[in-house]
């Protein structure tokens, strides 16, 4: 099983023109295939949650307290409904909650990753290409921020933003604040990677050749350098997505994320933990498993992608 990824092999002086084509053949093991299927499956399930979910966990009309605390796959004695993953204390279907929860988690994670990509890639490109004071200022800020764990930055940003938003709007603004907090906390890694790669590419003579005929810096960045950064950016974006999923879950678990009215996977785990000692394991276990599978599959894809793109690891020798 193999998939072609259209990324030209980076030039390596040791082995000139050894590969017959610019495509690297990414041999996908069974594990990688599973991860790919899982990631796509979970994302699709989240996307079509309203169609797939048997119940609407946010509609109080469908909730019946008599159905509370039902174990998985056992018909309720009162309503004779069966719940795939059981129900929580309020009679909410855990399976439906997970579908909607993944939706919230993934929305936040994708939006946050997009935000950090946007900030990080532009900051990295400008920093790497311009050099000088611009570079120093951007990288000092990034370095300073990078010394603190992202979760801490996100917490701080979240706390400050909450303080700035009027109390009445806090709940509706929470998701946006969360996206901003996570997105903002992750940009330095992106900027560092992109800057490093830009510095390497900038020194290559094809850039000098373009400068010779008067191509503008902006155009050189976009048409010459950016295409050569596609590989590393793809890798950090994938790994960044996994990080954002985990970060969102952690913040929600800590109770500073999305409001409880729109629970994400982290919120569900936070709720489920209360039942850990009383034996209702399913309220905790299913959301936790979903979160782990999601983070793991995306992380694994990023990891394999990085190995495939790293020429030295790929060759196995110099």
């Amino acid at each position: 099983m193999a998939v072609d990824i259209n990324l030209p092999a980076p030039p390596s002086p040791d082995r000139p023109a050894s590969t017959p084509s610019g495509r690297i053949r990414l041999k996908l093991g069974i594990v990688t295939w599973l991860a790919l299927l899982l990631a796509i499956g979970l994302m699709l399930a989240a996307l079509f949650a309203p169609l797939l979910a048997p119940y609407d966990p946010f509609d109080p009309a469908t909730l019946d307290l008599l159905d509370g605390m039902m174990p998985p796959m056992q018909p309720s004695a009162f309503t004779e409904k069966t719940f795939l993953f059981g129900t929580d204390n309020q009679g909410r279907d855990v399976f439906s909650s997970i579908l909607y929860g993944s939706r919230v988690s993934l929305t936040v994670a994708f939006a946050a990753t997009f935000l950090s990509l946007a900030i990080g890639v532009s900051a990295g490109l400008v920093s790497g290409y311009a050099g000088g004071v611009t570079d120093a200022v951007i990288m000092r800020v990034a370095d300073a921020q990078l010394t603190f764990p992202t979760i801490l930055i996100a917490l701080l940003v979240f706390g400050i933003a909450q303080g700035l938003v009027p109390a009445a709007e806090q709940e509706s603004a929470a998701v946006w604040i969360l996206i901003f907090a996570i997105g903002f906390s992750n940009w330095p890694q992106f900027a560092r990677t992109v800057r490093g790669a830009t510095l390497v590419e900038k020194r290559r003579d094809y850039v000098a050749a373009a400068r010779l005929i008067g191509v503008s810096p902006a155009r050189i960045l976009v048409t010459h350098i950016l295409p050569n950064l596609a590989g590393p950016v793809l890798v950090i974006a994938t790994i960044g997505l996994a990080l954002a999923v985990i970060e969102e879950a952690t913040l929600s678990y800590l109770g500073v994320g999305v409001p409880p009215t729109r629970p994400s996977l982290g919120t569900l785990i936070r709720i489920g933990q209360q039942f850990l000692f009383s034996g209702e394991w399913w309220i905790l276990a299913f959301p936790a498993a979903t979160l782990v599978l999601l983070a793991l599959s995306v992380n694994l894809l990023g990891d394999r992608l990085r190995d495939a793109l790293n020429p030295r690891l790929r060759d196995g020798r110099r």
């Binding site: 879950a249 785990i269 000692f277 979160l291």
Partner: peptide, 22 residues
Amino acid sequence: SLVGVSLPTFLIGIGLIYLFSV
């Protein structure tokens, strides 16, 4: 270790509590 990186810290904690305490 890859699994370890993908597990949020709080889940590891909950897992350990479940196993060794509960």
